[in-house]
Design a protein around this nucleic acid. Structure first.
Length: 585
RNA sequence: GCCCCUGUAGCUCAAAUGGACAGAGCACUGGACUUCUAAUCCAGGGGUUACAGGUUCGAGUCCUGUCAGGGGCGCCA
């Protein structure tokens, strides 16, 4: 926004530094902290330190301060866009005129509207594979983190200008599916799922899992597995039908979460090509066939001459049946055959780090030149208090729909209190936006590498650093604008004296575009989660201390534009997180 | 045995390329609704950033080691 001023002053500073005998230096521009004004700070420490390294007998902090003062004197009164300059503690601080700066920021935000913070297309395509649920099973809070993280990363990548392909990879075959079908045929024949499909599917699965403990039942399940392997038409038909139910159930959940996918891959699709691929690997001498005594393996350490780094990847069981690896290799290949990808991201929990490292390396030694475009986006698990892992088998799960229902119920109670006049449908819509927002924010406002400990009280706490707080700031802004009347003042002049809350608010708004880029590069929605909260916090402060509607006309005009811009930035940042920004709550 | 991650206020978590005083929320105490929605705001206390060294003008951030917790390591997914 201030590139012109910046490059002008940079040129002047360099001219001065040359006269001091410093050529070819990189100046660093950063923000000035704690100032209450805007500007650029240039630390002179690096230059002073460089001189010291060349053998000059100087104290670095002292020399840095000397340089800063020298530049200040050199610039004199010819500040070109800056209002004043100071040299303090080895920094050169260049201040913008408050009025000019504020107006330029607000004008830019309002002019760009929903596009503010977003970047132009860069002609790069990235595929993000996430969610990856098993059909015929539950969808619990552990699965939720993956979807929410993956979904937000997609939105942020799009904001950074990437073309994004959302991919889902469904586990639609395996023992869990056979168990489910066995129980269905034996105990639930003819039944059809109820409204909440995933919940219903899971009930049958959980029961099957219990019954499976009985050796007699296990034998029946194994027999059914054999029929499946022979492609018994009756079994295949049942599989297709029940799989569809599961997919419909996932769609209900994805719709509720505001997620959707461009491309669905199924494990069943890549199983055969995986088997062929393993044969080819054996032919090439990359894989070693130890059957029937052992499995088919790829000894990566042996191939690469490394030790204990890549270990051994098993690509086929000794009985010839497939593993995850059997399918992940052809899947990766298929992705690049279908799309011209610049990046292929796997959102998968951190426990699979070594496994994915092996998969990526295997593809590399197979000679695929795109192997370096594969990236594992690892995240930690969602555990229950006491570091208990969620596992269906242990019964230690919080199911998605139970959680959403309870959270929505609690949010609804508050909506009833605050806005009793709204229709039932709208109350529910708001409650759900708040409830889901709170859940999503909890998952996103935590570094990917950190375990989320789920407890009901924290998940359902709508106060403090949480999505409802941010949504509420958005509502308040909207409320002011609504009461102000139809149209926003087309422009307004900002005064040179602004309230601290106003200064901070404008400052935070300028951070959005840069933070989006950084969040995209690092796959960290947390950066946006933090920013959105801070903007909301400062907005609430502003709301309390600065009157808008009752202010003098000129003040009212610029503050209305400030409010509109703040609302826009809050809405945009929430959007990156996949969180809805209601207009009433 | 080897590898990866984490360790910051009582609790849950932040802190861009190493930069100016390590910040929020919760909880606690005390204040603020006849005024744009109090799901809000203000004030207060609370820290040897696990520990010990090192690099640097400067380290929560980088390096080495130690301790504590979690995870991974040829036929689980």
């Amino acid at each position: 926004m201030f590139d012109q001023e910046k490059s002008l002053v940079e040129l002047k500073i360099k001219t001065y530094l040359q006269s001091e005998g410093i050529d070819d230096c990189n100046l660093e521009f950063r923000q000035i902290p704690f100032s209450g004004e805007w500007g650029l700070a240039v630390p002179l420490f690096p230059l002073a330190a460089a001189e010291a390294r060349l053998g000059k007998k100087i104290s670095v902090p002292q020399r840095a301060q000397e340089l800063a003062e020298g530049i200040q004197a050199y610039l004199g009164d010819d500040l070109g866009g800056f209002s004043h300059v100071e040299a303090v503690k080895g920094y050169l601080n260049l201040f913008f005129s408050t009025a000019t700066y504020a107006q330029r920021v607000i004008d830019t935000v309002l002019e760009q509207g929903a596009d503010y913070g977003r970047h132009p297309g860069r002609d790069k395509t990235v595929m993000v594979e996430y969610s990856q649920p098993n059909t015929h099973k539950a969808f619990h809070v552990g699965h939720l983190r993956n979807v929410i993280l993956g979904g937000s990363v997609c939105r942020i990548l799009e904001g950074a200008g990437y073309e994004v392909i959302r991919a889902n990879y469904l586990g639609d075959i395996g023992l869990h599916v056979i168990k489910w079908m066995w129980n269905y045929m034996k105990n639930h024949a003819g039944e059809t799922p109820d409204e909440d499909r995933t919940h219903w599917m899971n009930a049958i699965y959980a029961e099957a899992d219990q019954l499976f403990q009985d050796p007699e039942n296990e034998a029946e399940v194994r027999a059914l597995y054999a029929r499946w392997n022979q492609r018994d038409p009756e079994i295949i038909a049942l599989w297709q039908k029940t799989r569809q139910w599961s997919l419909e159930g996932f769609d209900q959940i994805y719709t509720q979460l505001d997620e959707s996918f461009d491309r669905l891959y199924f494990e069943s699709e890549v199983e055969e090509s995986g088997a062929r691929l393993v044969d080819a690997l054996i032919q090439k001498g990359l894989a070693r066939d130890e059957r029937p005594e052992g499995p088919v393996i790829i000894d990566l350490d042996e191939i690469l001459g490394t030790e204990d780094e890549y270990r051994v990847l098993v690509v086929l069981r000794s009985d010839g049946s497939s593993l995850y690896s059997t399918k992940d290799l052809p899947l990766a290949i298929q992705k690049f055959a279908e799309y011209d990808l610049d990046q292929s991201i796997y959102v998968i929990d951190v426990r699979q780090s070594l496994y994915l490292k092996q998969i990526f390396k295997t593809l590399e030694v197979m000679g695929f030149e795109w192997a370096d475009k594969l990236h594992h986006l690892a995240y930690e698990l969602v555990n229950l208090p006491g570091n208990v892992t969620m596992a269906s088998r242990e019964g230690t799960v919080v199911l998605f729909d139970d959680l959403v229902r309870e959270a929505t119920r609690r949010a609804k109670t508050i909506v009833e209190e605050k806005n009793p006049e709204l229709t039932e449908a709208i109350k529910h819509e708001i409650a759900e936006a708040v409830a889901l927002g709170a859940l999503k924010y909890t998952m996103l406002a935590r570094d990917n590498a950190k375990v989320v400990t789920f407890d009901w009280d924290a998940a359902l706490d709508f106060n403090g650093q949480a999505a409802p707080y941010i949504q509420y700031a958005h509502v308040r802004a909207g409320s002011i604008l609504r009461k102000a009347g139809q149209s926003l003042p087309p422009q307004a002049v900002f005064p040179d004296e602004l309230h601290k809350a106003e200064v901070d608010l404008i400052e935070l708004m300028t951070r959005l575009p840069g933070d989006v880029l950084r969040a995209a590069e690092e796959y960290r929605p947390l950066i946006i989660a933090n920013l959105s909260f801070e903007i909301a916090r400062v907005f609430n402060d502003f709301y309390n201390t600065c009157q808008v509607l009752n202010a003098a006309p000129d003040v009212r005009d610029y503050r209305l534009r400030l409010v509109a811009a703040a609302q826009q930035v809050i809405a945009t940042s929430l959007k990156f997180l996949g969180i809805k920004a209601p207009s009433i709550m």
